[in-house]
Nucleic acid binder design. Structure first.
Ligand SMILES: [Mn+2]
Ligand SMILES: [Mn+2]
Ligand SMILES: [Mn+2]
Ligand SMILES: [Mn+2]
Lengths: 217, 217
DNA sequence: TTCCAAAATTAGGCTTGCCTAACTTCGTCG
DNA sequence: CGACGAAGTTAGGCAAGCCTAATTTTGGAA
């Protein structure tokens, strides 16, 4: 069985790759909160265990084996997050931290029971797709809110779950997963965006809009 | 925050003390599945951290601080066991192992939500009392089935949760927590016991009966 | 009372995963 | 080109927790 560290590294590599960012030593160190030297050390282990390919001074890439394990961990993480949110009623900005620990302690047996209890859900509380039990995952087909044109109609698909303060902010201004909206204004030079949702108008800055994924037109 | 190992050691010490067995190096090593030398090493740590008193070549005793933490861990363990059993429907012989890992990963926030979800239960699936949130615990007032006299009427109070095969055996012969029974026969020289429960007759050996706690007359 | 096996401890070693400090390599910009 | 800052790696170290082997202490049996 892989250690909690190995699981977290593979998950971090997968998430970087999925964001089409190369999984660099720097990126992993920042994402995992460790030093670059620690990443270099662990990458050697991951390579020796057959989880990744590594080209020195370039980044790292998951092998099929590594991807399989990364998706298993991600499935656990997201099912646990949804359980914490939907069944226990924890706010969406508090579930990630708990899930980060529980994902390494919950057996597959427990995860599959949770999955059943939740009705085999497709998305976690932040709108991210839950990998399937068979090792596949349905990719999100969306675009950044910041990339949309004025007039764009769609729904809020997914937001990053890493920053609790950001999630509280979003909740505070009324943005939640599934919300239908129309982009009504977009100031130039990366200025703020305005959307209509129902009869409410919501304004948010450009940097925030780069962290929100919405459905295509 | 104490490590998972420290938490398991304190829990093991507490359980030995509660069973009125002195918490010896041998007993801890057996209970935790490690070597005696490892126990000696950890006991030094626990002493340095103020969790236990230690008299060389004698056993170890929890301080107030150690007892507090032990009860917190035991509370987590038993709430998680009940959740796995009652909400997820895992059989009672499978919950201990999962709880042993989850007890170190679940935050107090999650535990208190689970406790609420379960209705602030008093007992875990094996009949053991769940320590309260304030650091107290209601002791079980029972006696071993093997110590009862023929004619004794009572209920099954609690069974050990450590041995899955034993739990499966008990379930197989129809023994479960809360079952009302009358002891109808007891062979001499540590022979088998027979109880009536409802219209069923259940026979079990003396060693098994020493692992079953029942209510006093 | 002595002796012996079990219990306990000490000594020393290993693995994992992190760190800092020193170095090498990369890629960009003047 | 050439140099310089960022990225990456190497070297060496540390803490936790486990191990085996050797030694010491204990307590009960002879
Ligand atoms: Mn998350
Ligand atoms: Mn994690
Ligand atoms: Mn248990
Ligand atoms: Mn445990």
């Amino acid at each position: 069985m892989a250690s909690a560290s190995v699981e977290d590294y593979l998950k971090a590599i997968y998430l970087l790759q999925t964001a089409r960012t190369p999984a660099t030593t720097r990126g992993l160190a920042d994402g995992l909160g460790v030093r670059m030297a620690s990443v270099t050390g662990m990458v050697k282990q991951l390579h020796a265990a057959g989880y990744v390919r590594h080209e020195r001074y370039r980044g790292v890439q998951l092998t099929a084996k590594g991807r399989r394990l990364a998706l298993r961990v991600l499935r656990r993480h997201r099912i646990i997050e949804l359980f914490l949110s939907k069944v226990l009623g924890l706010p969406w900005d508090e579930v990630h931290e708990d899930a980060e620990a529980l994902e390494h302690a919950a057996s597959d047996r427990v995860i599959e029971r949770l999955n059943t209890l939740l009705g085999s859900p497709a998305f976690d509380p932040h709108g991210a797709p839950i990998p399937h039990g068979d090792g596949t995952i349905s990719p999100l087909n969306g675009r950044l809110l910041s990339d949309c044109e004025v007039g764009h109609r769609g729904r809020i698909l997914c937001v990053s779950d890493k920053d609790p303060a950001f999630l509280r902010y979003l909740a505070g201004i009324g943005i939640r997963i599934g919300l239908r909206f129309r982009l009504v204004d977009k100031a130039p030079f990366d200025g703020p965006l305005a959307i209509h949702a129902g009869r409410k108008k919501i304004v948010l800055g450009h940097p925030a809009a780069t962290r929100v994924l919405v459905s295509p037109p």
